[in-house]
Design a protein around this nucleic acid. Structure first.
Lengths: 250, 250
DNA sequence: CGAGGGTTTGAAGTGCATCAAATAGTGTGG
DNA sequence: CCACACTATTTGATGCACTTCAAACCCTCG
């Protein structure tokens, strides 16, 4: 028999958090010491649907790492419109772009669905990046990856039609090695997806219909069946600099 | 009298390069040793107008730092169109996004005008970033700044009209503390500027005209006179999340 | 002067937004 | 399990923004 006391609830939670983080690319090869330090300084937060995490122009106090759920990053224009910058999920981080610069969030963030986050003070993150070289390099990778994705986003917005952009998005939901028929579910509701793709809900609806006319496609609610992925990529990737299993593919 | 021999041409060039680099944000607070190492490993290259520096998908061997002139970054789509990603000048760097990732250029680069560049092997850069912490942090700043700029670009493309985007661009050419009347020159030809702003030359021409009808503006070749910068920012920034001396302003 | 690129203009077409309204879907209280 | 309220999605009609195609104009440089 062991005399060791059972771990407390907090200890179990901490252990799970470490296990989760260990498998994230951002913490790849990062020392256990740093990882522990990270966990100590951070808090796990849960927010319900619609909850605003911070607003653009707010002073940036925290950096976030998503454990579960979806977060919308957006900007509000003076004339009252909303530009959705990105929609993130498990494994993605946000609130980092303000790092080492003016400490102001360049966008607002909102929970799309109930979301579970790891929250870390920016100051702790900076300190850790300064002290742990590997973490700094991982951060460099993460941000430059993000920058490349944004580059694709820009290309898509200026070169593709709405229907092609939608097709491109669907392709990126497919596993990288897909061929022939693929069935998938839209990850969040169509209105949100529309704004994510830079179009109005009406346009989204019509584009989906149009896409179905151009390539074999059947839609049932949030379920989409692509009959022939090659055909789809031919249609969608034609106005892009890359084809299907492309770099923009996560 | 001094017996010290005169410095050689190469030594003078090296000295000048170091002086130049020292004043660049990227080398801020970087040690002299690193700076020297950088200069030793790098070469100064001059390319004439139209010269292709590298193509998208090429293996990324070099990183570039612009000393003088203009460089166009772009992608070519399968259906034969060109998407201009960015146009850079003195003090900007490119070819970095491939750092620590797949070593492939995500865009093509071309000299717009005759251009003078500092060229450094990617491997040397990586090595230096790994060994000099300050350089790594500066790189982090540089890339996250770039990423924020791209975020604005995306917002602009999806929220602003062509004329507003043009107005926004003109505003960013103005000194940050400008008020009232400002006179400026377009930095490169209108066709290129059009593609930089994601529109056709015809649209550019018409947008410039339209802009002149909406706000007081006179155009003479490449010279533009903005009569009232507040009026201009009211017009252009209305569809944006920020106003005139804005974050996107370099 | 003439050739060729950059720029503007005109006419016509396409794509997306807007406004308005119908329809489908979901969750709630009875 | 139904009726109601509310939201998401679709559809139709119309207009504006940008592109396309074609042609003229303007510069400048050999």
């Amino acid at each position: 028999m062991m005399n060791r006391p059972l771990p407390s609830v907090a200890e179990v939670a901490e252990f799970q958090l470490i296990e989760f983080l260990k498998h994230q690319r951002f913490f790849n090869e990062v020392s256990d010491a740093t990882l522990h330090h990270f966990v100590e300084q951070s808090r796990i937060k849960t927010y319900p649907k619609r909850n605003i995490l911070f607003m653009q122009e707010d002073e940036a106090h925290h950096f976030y790492f998503i454990m579960h759920g979806w977060v919308k990053l957006f900007r509000e224009t003076l004339d009252g419109n909303e530009a959705v910058t990105d929609i993130l999920t498990t494994g993605h981080m946000f609130g980092v772009t303000s790092l080492f610069e003016n400490k102001i969030y360049p966008y607002s963030a909102e929970a799309v669905e109930s979301v579970k986050l790891v929250q870390l003070p920016i100051s702790s993150l900076e300190e850790m990046i300064k002290s742990d070289k590997k973490l700094a390099l991982n951060m460099l990778s993460a941000i430059s990856r993000r920058s490349r994705e944004q580059g694709h986003e820009i290309e898509h917005l200026s070169m593709q039609t709405a229907a092609q952009r939608l097709g491109c998005f669907l392709l990126r939901l497919c596993p990288m090695d897909s061929t022939g028929e693929v069935i998938l579910r839209l990850p969040y509701d169509k209105t949100l997806l529309a704004s994510r793709l830079g179009m109005k809900p009406e346009t989204f609806s019509r584009s989906l219909k149009k896409l179905g006319e151009q390539v074999d496609l059947s839609v049932d609610g949030a379920t989409v069946r692509i009959h022939d992925i090659e055909q789809m990529s031919h249609y969608a990737c034609n106005a892009c600099s890359q084809t299907f299993p492309c770099e923009a593919h996560d």
